[in-house]
Design a protein around this nucleic acid. Structure first.
Lengths: 210, 210
DNA sequence: GTCTATATCCCGATAGAC
DNA sequence: GTCTATCGGGATATAGAC
C-alpha cells in the first residue's frame, strides 16, 4: 500500500521535506510557539518519533525552516533590486521587499526575524544569512558613499524602519489582506527615502564645510 | 503563623499585586511565553489554584500587566516630552523614550507591544492605551501642521522607526547593558529627526508651490 | 482566600521491535 | 525509516474542604 515516491503515510516518501512544509503551516496558524513536533507528526500521519530520524530535535527543524526562509527572501530581494539603478531607490526596494516578505511569507519571516531560534550548533543558518547582510551593506555603502561610519548608521536605521513597518503590518495596524501589505511596503519604501534625504540634510547642517 | 499584612505564604497578603510582580519577573527571564500560572504560584509559595481567586485565567493576568505597562510608559513619556519645546524634538523624545522603555522595562514592553494578548473581554487595556495614542497624535500634528493625511503618515513612520530600533535592541543588535540601550535610543531619536526633515524635503519637491 | 487533590491535555525525547 | 510504547515533565483549570 505505501507507494514509494508519494504515499499517504510517507513510507519511503520525503518525510524530511514534508516536515518542513508542515512546520511552516503550523507556524502560519499559531506562530513559532504554535509549532510542535507532535502536531506536525499528527498532521502528516506519522508516529511522533518519526521526525527524529531526520532532525535531532525541534530546534533543528526550525533551523531548516530558517535556511529556507533565507533562500526565499534572498531570491525575492535580488529580483526587486534589479528593477532599480539608483542606490537610494535600491535601498527603498529592499525595504519594500522586506515588508512584502513579512506579509506574504509570514511564517518564514517570523522564524527568521522574530523567532529566537538557537543558532548554536547551526552554522548553516548564519551562512544562509550572510548573502542577505552582504547585499544590504553593499547597497548602503553605495548610498552613503565616502564615510564608512555613516554607512553602518544608515544600515541600522533602514533596517529598523523596514522591521518596524513589517511588525506593525503583522500586528494588523494596516488592516488585513494584500492591500494592507502593499500599503505597509509602500510606506516603508517612502520612509527609507525620507530617511536618506533627511540624513543628508542634517549632516550637511552639522558639517557645512563638506 | 501567616501574618496578616505580609507573610511568607501570602495569607491575607496582597496576592493579586504579588502575582503581577511575579509575572513580570517570569517574563523578564523567559519572555511572555515563559510565564505560567503554575510557575508564578510556585515562586510565591501558594497553591496553583490560588491565582484563580484573583484572575479569571492566564490572559486576564497578562492584561493586568499590560495596563501596568501603559501607566509606566505614559508617565515616562510625559516626563521626557516636557524637556523639549520644539514639536520635532518632542517627537524625537518619544522615540527615545520608546526605546528606553523597551530596554529598561523589557517585560512590560513585550507584553504591551509584542505580547499578542487577547484583548477580547479586556477593554481596560485599550482604555489604558488611549492616552498614549492621543499624545503621540497630538505631537505629530504639531510637527506636520496643516495636512491631516500627512499626520497619519508621519505617526506611522515614527512609530515604525521607534519600534524597529526597540526590537533590534531586544534582539541584541546593539550589544548588552545600559550603553546599548542609550545607543539604540539615540539612533531612534536621530532617525526620527531625519525622517521629519526628509519628508519635508521630499514633499516640497513633489509640490514645489507650497 | 487559600489549600489539597485531581482531571485533562500536550509536549519532547528515547528504547526497542520490525 | 518508521512504528509502538513509554517515561517524565509541565500546563490550565476545576471541585470541594477549610
Amino acid at each position: 500500500m505505501p507507494t514509494p515516491g508519494k504515499g499517504d503515510r510517507y513510507h519511503h516518501g520525503d518525510l524530511r521535506a514534508a516536515l518542513i512544509e508542515a512546520a511552516i503551516e503550523l507556524i502560519r496558524e499559531g506562530g513559532v510557539s504554535g509549532f510542535s513536533m507532535s502536531e506536525a507528526s499528527r498532521r502528516l500521519g506519522v508516529a511522533v518519533s518519526a521526525p527524529y530520524a531526520h532532525f535531532a530535535d525541534r530546534n533543528d527543524l526550525l533551523a531548516a525552516v530558517a535556511v529556507r526562509a533565507c533562500e526565499v527572501f534572498y531570491r525575492e530581494m535580488l529580483q526587486e533590486i534589479g528593477k532599480a539603478r539608483d542606490p537610494a531607490d535600491r535601498l527603498a526596494a529592499i525595504a519594500r521587499c522586506y515588508v512584502r516578505f513579512a506579509g506574504f511569507n509570514r511564517p518564514l519571516f517570523e522564524v527568521l526575524f522574530t523567532g529566537r531560534i538557537d543558532k548554536r550548533g547551526h552554522p548553516e543558518v548564519e551562512e544562509a544569512e550572510r548573502p542577505l547582510d552582504d547585499t544590504l551593506l553593499e547597497i548602503v555603502r553605495a548610498v552613503s558613499g565616502e564615510d564608512p561610519l555613516s554607512s553602518d548608521d544608515l544600515a541600522t536605521a533602514a533596517e529598523a524602519a523596514a522591521h518596524g513597518h513589517a511588525m506593525m503590518l503583522l500586528d494588523g495596524d494596516f488592516g488585513d489582506g494584500d492591500a494592507a501589505i502593499e500599503e505597509a511596503a509602500q510606506r516603508a519604501s517612502a520612509a527609507t527615502l525620507a530617511l536618506i534625504e533627511g540624513r543628508r540634510l542634517l549632516s550637511r547642517r552639522s558639517a557645512p564645510k563638506t
